[in-house]
């Protein structure tokens, strides 16, 4: 069942995830479309998340936005200071300005970066983990995750373990999606686009997620007629033969990457699985380290040692 509605307010609204927003267009959603969509969202009991462009939005849009309870996702380089201050989630698309940014405990942060650049910013991430309560790292080049990057990514993740242990020991329970989510979760917690979340794009149509809009896929409904997702079962875990036997619970299970890499929304490519399993295994090491430092820490949680990095290898039909 759809629970979340994501609304990029313009074609250059910040991306919060793996996709890149459309370059070269700043077309903004029409006020009337937005108004209708929000009435519909209220009737459907949806939680609404707005994505803003760096220049902010005009007064007309502001007024409509404020008619509904919502989450604001704002780029770190937003020129509208009030908007940035009021943001629930702040997104960094570059490393510029991170060191001097005024991080706050009540905001969450997203860093979007390529794997190689991420690996080279180990010190920066370690420093950040001391300043924030929640950090999501989103890798923007998952399809390029080749075997040459496997070790580097693993070492990078493991290098963060001492910092997280130190923070937890001092009572600062920092969350880092790549390492702490797997420890906290007891089942799959994926992006769920098409199943739990839906996107209303600036063109006034519904899409599975903003990535499908920016990538030129057909819409899955209009504001007039409402969303109409064909083959909706394929967005559910029950109909994803590889993912349903997997325990990398923190994995995004990105249906857009699935579509790109395998042509099927329910089937992940190898890159996504291997990456998520390196994170899973590093989370296992983090849990061990936390237990050493804090005996009894989450004593119920067990993350098994496994020999594979891709659950596909366990399927024999």
């Amino acid at each position: 069942m759809i629970k979340y509605l994501i609304i990029p307010l313009s074609d250059n609204a910040v991306s919060f995830c793996h996709y890149n927003a459309r370059k070269g267009s700043s077309a903004t959603i029409e006020t009337e479309t937005l108004r209708k969509a929000l009435i519909w969202a209220m009737k459907e009991n949806l939680s609404v998340q707005f994505l803003y462009p760096s220049e902010g939005v005009g007064k007309n849009i502001e007024l409509i936005i404020n008619t509904i309870d919502h989450t604001d996702i704002v780029p770190a380089d937003c020129r509208d200071n009030n908007r940035l201050k009021g943001a629930d989630i702040v997104v960094f698309n570059t490393w510029d300005g991170i060191e001097t940014f005024g991080f706050r405990p009540d905001q969450s942060y997203i860093i979007r970066t390529t794997t190689e650049i991420l690996i080279n910013h180990r010190d920066g991430i370690q420093a950040l983990l001391k300043k924030v309560n929640r950090l999501n790292i989103v890798v923007t080049d998952v399809p390029n995750f080749n075997p040459e990057l496997h070790n580097g990514y693993q070492e990078f993740l493991e290098s963060l373990i001492p910092t997280i242990v130190e923070e937890y020991s001092s009572g600062h329970m920092v969350q880092l999606n790549l390492l702490t989510d797997r420890i906290m979760l007891t089942g799959m917690n994926n992006c769920n686009a098409g199943n739990e979340s839906l996107t209303l794009a600036p063109d006034g149509n519904f899409y599975t997620c903003p990535a499908f809009y920016f990538d030129g896929f057909p819409a899955v409904g209009t504001t007039e007629q409402g969303p109409d997702i064909k083959n909706p079962q394929l967005y559910r875990l029950s109909h994803a033969p590889i993912c349903r036997i997997c325990d990398a619970y923190q994995c995004k299970r990105c249906v857009w990457h699935n579509q790109q890499l395998t042509f099927e929304v329910n089937t992940p490519g190898k890159q996504q699985c291997v990456m998520a399993h390196i994170e899973r295994n590093a989370s296992r090491k983090l849990l061990e380290a936390l237990r050493k430092a804090m005996p009894g820490f989450m004593s119920e949680t067990i993350i098994q040692e496994i020999k594979y990095l891709d659950p596909f290898d366990n399927i024999k039909i």
Partner: peptide, 14 residues
């Protein structure tokens, strides 16, 4: 090989 993954994991009930 990514393009083969759906074919190789497709079962009757799904």
């Amino acid at each position: 090989s990514n393009k083969l993954r759906p074919f190789l994991t497709l079962d009757r009930t799904t």
